[in-house]
Simulated assay, not measured.
Amino acid sequence: MWFMYASLAAVSFGLRGILYQWTSQRRTDRNVLLFGVYLSGALISFVVNLFVNQTWSQGVWFGVPMGLFSFIANASMYKGYSVGRASLIALFTGLPPVVVVTLAYFMWGEALGLVQMAGFCIVILGLLVIRYSHDLKLGQLQGIQWGLLTMLFFGFTDLSSKQATLSAANTLPVLTVMYGTGTILFACMYLLSRLKTPAEKGLKITAAGTAHETPRERETGEGPYGQQARISRHSGESGSSPNSGESRQPLQNSGGPVRAASPVWSMKRTVLWGMTVGITNLAGMLFIIPAFRGGVTGIVSAISAMNVVLVLLYAQFYLKENISRREACGMLLALAGILVVRLAS
């Protein structure tokens, strides 16, 4: 059963990736969107458990590191996409199984059999072939630190999920705590961004006000905007002036500039859509936790990482993007690796 659960988790996470891609083309606030995603998971898990009545044991507190690690991984991934090459960051998002299988060996003594190891290596090779961009050069590694953080903390999320199952914690209470933690963290991120925005606007206003001062007032700081103007000019020198490239964009989220012609989504609409997307995210976690309970940690993580295949098929048939030979070969390798793992299990 664990193999079926891991495969269903891959499908669910693939659907989540498709919805994220579609949403990224709209003018939304990333923190509000992800707040809705995590809020949906917390509410659904809590309400369903009122009827199922799974026990709240001490192990449910492993949901806190699960939520924290998931939050850091998502934040790092979006930051990486905003400052680095997408192909480089995508490479690291396919590598958490390497972290998982390595640490699982040291933490719980989980060693793969010879055939399982061969299948695992084939799956990882396939993911690398799919993700790797042959045009990466040594001077194009901006954002590599965010890619590494993404890989590590997605791996830590899987490991903490496995630890929750080892502590005999029930699925729904663990997910309630996990998504509740993520909801609080993304709410804090949104509030911090709102506090930061008025301060930035204030600097722009004070800079504009200096146009009404006399040359002597601007030089000595004796005019009505003198002190603030000096702060604004200093900020401009550090790269945050109103005329910087970032401020010229009509509106941005963490993934970079968005289409100026697209209408801005309201907070209510963004939260509701985030809660809809959150259903696919919750479904993936509902499948992957039982898979960790019955299967080998590294193998389950590798199978769930196959969600990239579904996203590629979506790009091929819906977005009309051609799948290269490299990507097609990677898909076949990954599927072959999963077949080997299945036969060895």
Rank of each mutant, 00 (worst) to 15 (best):
L141P: 02
G245M: 13
Y314Q: 04
G126E: 01
A334Y: 06
F51D: 05
Q142P: 02
S266G: 15
F154Y: 13
A10Y: 04
L319R: 10
I124C: 04
M66N: 04
G223R: 09
F71E: 00
G113Q: 11
E110R: 10
G109R: 10
S244D: 14
E222N: 13
A207T: 07
W2A: 08
I89V: 14
S57M: 10
F51M: 11
R233D: 04
R26C: 04
N322K: 13
L339R: 12
V32E: 02
T206W: 11
M4W: 13
A229T: 04
P257Q: 11
G274P: 08
V101D: 00
G221T: 10
S133L: 09
P250S: 12
N49I: 01
F92D: 00
F154C: 01
M285Q: 13
K137W: 09
G143Y: 04
V264T: 14
Q21K: 15
V129R: 11
L272I: 05
S244Y: 08
A187S: 14
A291K: 02
K196G: 09
Y225I: 03
G294F: 10
I44K: 02
A42K: 03
E217P: 05
S235N: 14
A104R: 03
T297V: 07
Y81R: 01
W265I: 00
P65W: 06
T157M: 14
E327L: 12
Q140Y: 08
E327K: 15
G245L: 13
Q21H: 14
W61D: 01
S241Y: 10
I289A: 07
A207E: 10
V296E: 04
K162S: 05
W22M: 15
R26A: 08
R325T: 08
E213T: 08
T276H: 06
I303M: 09
V100I: 02
Y190F: 12
S82W: 04
Q227V: 13
C121G: 10
S76Q: 06
I130Q: 01
Q54F: 09
R230Y: 12
P96K: 03
L125Q: 05
E222G: 09
F153H: 02
A344Y: 12
A334S: 15
K268L: 10
K204L: 07
T102E: 02
N53L: 08
T157G: 03
F120E: 00
I89G: 00
L175F: 12
G155I: 00
L103H: 11
P242H: 05
L103W: 11
F46D: 00
